[in-house]
């Protein structure tokens, strides 16, 4: 049971980190808490399902196309809705909350109430350490999650675009004085945040089929991870995701599986009491 809790905690933790990265990016750069984050995750899952299952596309092409479409959709949302709220955090909070409800009901109307699952990339399960069987799709999703996290890290640390993002995150005015077009950067950042939610959606929907209201749980866990790790911190997301994944799994294994998500909240409260800004609490990404 210990090995299973450890393995599953790490895998689920990576997945949580991936889902939280988009939230962290948008908070760090734009100071916008995107309540509709989970709905972008779900939208990508639906796109992926319909491209692969209904249109018969290759699953990899379906995933890439889904992420691309959600990126564009996110940028459009930024231009039409979010841009007007800059300077007042409360407005963007309320706006994304309403957007979340509108999107949920739209999904229900368009896609129906039943859970939809894109095809698995791999089938079957692997016997881990001769102790237990673990789904191959989960292992593949964990690997894909690590690749996406590594790409985001390299983009932030090694590219000119990443340097602009970090500069804007640290001091928006100084970044503007140095020629950074922060309006365009906001649009790209919001789109990228949505695309990261979409990446999590297409990676996870073969394991956890999507439903119209399924995004709420995703967004809630992502917020817990971001707050635990520290708002806007890349490493905060990764470490926060792993901590929540491990705590939930060990709690479910050795205390009670009926309160799996409560354990994460308990750890969050404990960490915030000791470090109110989170584990890696600063605005740098």
């Amino acid at each position: 049971m210990f090995l299973l809790a450890l393995t599953n905690g790490l895998v689920i933790g990576i997945i949580y980190a991936l889902a939280a990265l988009g939230v962290s990016l948008v908070v760090g750069i734009m100071n916008v808490v995107n309540f509709a984050h989970g709905e972008f995750y779900i939208l990508a899952g639906y796109f992926s399902y319909h491209f692969a299952n209904t249109l018969g596309m290759n699953y990899l092409a379906a995933m890439m196309l889904s992420v691309g479409l959600v990126l564009i959709f996110g940028m459009i949302i930024e231009v039409l809705l979010i841009r007007k709220t800059y300077g007042d955090d409360l407005y963007s909070l309320i706006l994304t909350f309403i957007l979340s409800i509108v999107l949920q009901n739209t999904y229900l109307l368009v896609f129906g109430p039943y859970p939809n699952k894109p095809p698995n990339w791999v089938k079957g399960a692997t016997n881990v350490f001769g102790q237990f069987y673990y789904g191959n799709q989960r292992l593949a999703a964990c690997g894909a999650g690590l690749v996406v996290i590594a790409i985001v890290y390299l983009m932030l640390k090694k590219t000119w675009f990443g340097r602009m993002l970090r500069a804007t995150s640290q001091d928006r005015e100084v970044a503007e004085l140095n020629g950074v077009n922060t309006t365009a950067l906001n649009m790209l950042s919001f789109g990228l945040g949505c695309a990261l939610a979409a990446a999590a959606g297409v990676i996870l929907s073969p394991i956890f089929p999507v439903t119209p209201t399924g995004g709420m749980a995703v967004a809630l866990t992502a917020f817990v991870v971001v707050v635990l790790g520290g708002m806007g911190s890349f490493w905060g997301c990764v470490v926060g995701g792993l901590i929540i994944g491990l705590v939930e799994n060990f709690g479910a294994a050795f205390i009670s599986s009926g309160y799996r998500h409560v354990f994460g909240f308990i750890i969050l409260i404990f960490v915030l009491l000791v470090r109110p800004a989170g584990l890696f609490g600063n605005r740098e990404i």
Partner: peptide, 20 residues
């Protein structure tokens, strides 16, 4: 008996207990 969360997605831990 094992209790699971209504909105839980991951049941691996419960399944390991059941399998034992």
């Amino acid at each position: 008996t094992v209790v699971t969360e209504r909105k839980g997605q991951d049941h691996y831990t419960e399944l390991a207990k059941i399998k034992a």
